[in-house]
Design a protein around this nucleic acid. Structure first.
Length: 572
DNA sequence: GCCGTTTTCGGCCCGACTGTTTTCAGTCG
């Protein structure tokens, strides 16, 4: 499957054209082509072979030919020519926050800066002082941008890490009896520093050799008889630990962590007269349990603690006193309350989305396109929103078992008022409200703004409440505690946005749940390929100790409709 | 560069914000 490789070609071309200050619509066309290829559900080489590339929306004559050329020769001459003009490392500079194509080009032309490292060095040495357009504030912003980028690129977002790990497991599966993902990835942390794998095998040396020779491996680190580390081309480090059938469960338990959870596990074991070693649970030097992992909990006479709870945050006490939550699972999710269509910036029609939702087995979903303030996303005003109602009704007629809720993702304006008038909001089945502007307000203003929106009687859900995008943007400054209080007082749900954000994050979601605030786990899908992200949101909800009843969209349609018509205690 | 049609050209993605200016360029969503 070459879709990702072809998409990268088009994105690189778009980056280069941006540097060259080319026609912005041409650049957009390449980005669209990249998106179209990346989200194409079958291998692009199949379409190329069948001669149906032009049938893919977003691909035209030029991009189809370049796709063919890449598949045939492994390169695209047009891109090679662009590469001759600018060094490859220049593209990395485009990803520095606060740095766009114009300034990247200026830095390259006037200071010879062609990489992130060179920019860092020039900033440190004060070499950019006096450069036109680079005043003190800009230099400070660049310094902060570099810091943010360094922090973000060190860790992989959960979704990306899961894909990398899944590929590794597939690649190694035939060489081992069994392979499991462990570490922070198994616990479902929002970002992952390194990937831990535990394998069951009787031939560790040969598995380790296979592992270190995988095509994605950039450099091999330390090795022992049963452990190996390697850095992948993507920069992420992978640890492989080999265990025997006898101690596989203990190895998985230890590799899963967290450090705090393991420290408490040792205390718990000791208190019961056991000793927890790397290869199993012992009593008086006698092996008691080592596999499966669940046997260790059984021997300690506590219920199994789900990996998402293993953070040393009270899970051992809860287990010992029999009050561990029955965590929400993906199977509990009955619908998706935050999705987009071609009416705003989604890639598929309401009908196509409905088909996807039915395939996922949902009983309902909400069409929540952007509101008019988000001009770039072609946000809807009241007139278009009313026109959309007709299309929803028409599609609904063909989907008797799937309720399509009429909704909006309404912008919360700078002063906390909503982007649309009350009369149109009250016509809708569901109102999701969120912030897409003025991220730099101070904490008090941002909090007041959002609290005002939360208290609005028409608002049902606050989407991505802290505004972060994993690996892209940190949260804005806001008092989450105050948001939770306001949400509780007005019976407003807070979202765990499952795509690219994981916002609310686990700890905040836990506080919300403890305060009695309902959480909505939503995909915020702009394309069908984003629907499976729901799993990431559910993992985050599990890390927040959520049971099914804590999550709004586990409700049956009937109960959901009842909740949407709830009386809100606080008037505006 | 893609797309749709009024069909081989013209429209497509625009406004807010910031920092640097002294009337606006660059970046971002």
């Amino acid at each position: 499957m070459q879709n990702a490789a072809v998409a990268k070609i088009f994105n690189d071309i778009a980056d280069y054209l941006e540097l060259a200050d080319d026609n912005p619509f041409k650049i957009r066309a390449y980005r669209r082509a990249a998106e179209a290829v990346a989200t194409h559900s079958t291998p692009i080489e199949d379409a190329a072979e069948a001669g149906t590339l032009l049938e893919i929306e977003g691909l035209g004559q030029a991009t189809a030919e370049k796709t063919q050329e890449f598949l045939a020769t492994g390169q695209v001459r047009f891109l090679e020519k662009l590469r001759d003009e600018y060094p490859l490392s220049l593209l990395d500079l485009l990803h520095v926050p606060n740095l766009g194509p114009k300034k990247v080009k200026q830095l390259y032309r006037e200071r010879g800066i062609s990489s992130v490292e060179e920019l860092q060095s020039a900033l440190c040495k004060g070499e950019l002082q006096g450069l036109a357009g680079f005043g003190p504030k800009t230099l400070q912003n660049l310094q902060q941008g570099l810091l943010r980028m360094a922090e973000m690129t060190k860790r992989l977002p959960l979704g990306d890490a899961r894909r990398v790990a899944a590929n590794l497991v597939v690649a190694l599966n035939s060489s081992a009896d069994r392979i499991e993902v462990a570490g922070s990835l198994r616990r479902g942390c929002d970002t992952i520093g390194n990937i831990n794998l535990v394998a069951q095998t009787n031939d560790a040396p040969s598995l380790i050799e296979t592992f270190t020779k995988l095509p994605g491996v950039l450099e091999v680190g330390e090795q022992t008889d049963c452990d190996a580390s390697a850095r992948l081309h993507t920069g992420i480090e992978v640890h492989l630990h080999c265990a025997t059938p006898r101690d596989f469960g203990a190895a998985l338990f230890h590799a899963t962590g967290s450090t705090q959870h393991l420290a408490e596990a040792n205390q718990q074991a000791a208190a019961r007269g056991f000793e927890l070693r790397c290869d199993g649970l012992y009593r008086n030097d006698e092996f008691v349990a080592g596999a499966p992992e669940a046997d260790i909990f059984k021997a300690l006479n506590v219920p199994f603690i789900e990996p998402e709870l293993r953070e040393g945050a009270g899970e051992w006490e809860a287990a010992a006193s029999g009050v561990l939550p029955v965590l929400v699972s993906l199977a509990d999710i009955r619908g998706d309350l935050h999705t987009h269509s071609t009416w705003s910036d989604g890639t598929v029609t309401i009908r196509q989305m409905a088909t996807e939702m039915r395939e996922r087995g949902y009983s309902y979903f909400a069409v929540t396109d952007h509101s008019k303030a988000l001009v770039m996303a072609n946000g809807l005003d009241a007139a278009r929103l009313r026109a959309q109602a007709e299309e929803i009704a028409a599609v609904q007629a063909d989907f008797p078992d799937l309720k399509i809720l009429r909704g909006i993702e309404c912008d919360i304006l700078r002063d906390g008022t909503l982007d649309l008038d009350d009369d149109i909001l009250h016509e809708l089945d569901i109102v999701v409200a969120s912030v897409h502007s003025a991220f730099t307000l101070d904490e008090a203003s941002q909090t007041a703004r959002m609290v005002r929106a939360i208290a609005h009687p028409a608002v049902d859900i606050i989407a991505h409440p802290t505004g972060r995008v994993l690996g892209v943007r940190p949260p804005y400054m806001v008092n989450v505690g105050a948001l939770i209080e306001a949400a509780r007082d007005s019976a407003t749900a807070l979202e765990i946005n499952a795509s690219e954000r994981l916002d609310l994050r686990d700890t905040h979601a836990k506080s919300a749940r403890e305060a009695g605030v309902l959480l909505a786990v939503d995909s915020d899908a702009h394309a069908p390929r984003m629907l499976p992200n729901m799993a990431l949101g559910v993992i985050t909800a599990r890390r927040a100790w959520c049971e099914s009843a804590d999550v709004l969209n586990t409700k049956s349609l009937e109960n959901l409709m009842q909740w949407l018509n709830r009386p809100q205690s606080k008037p505006l």
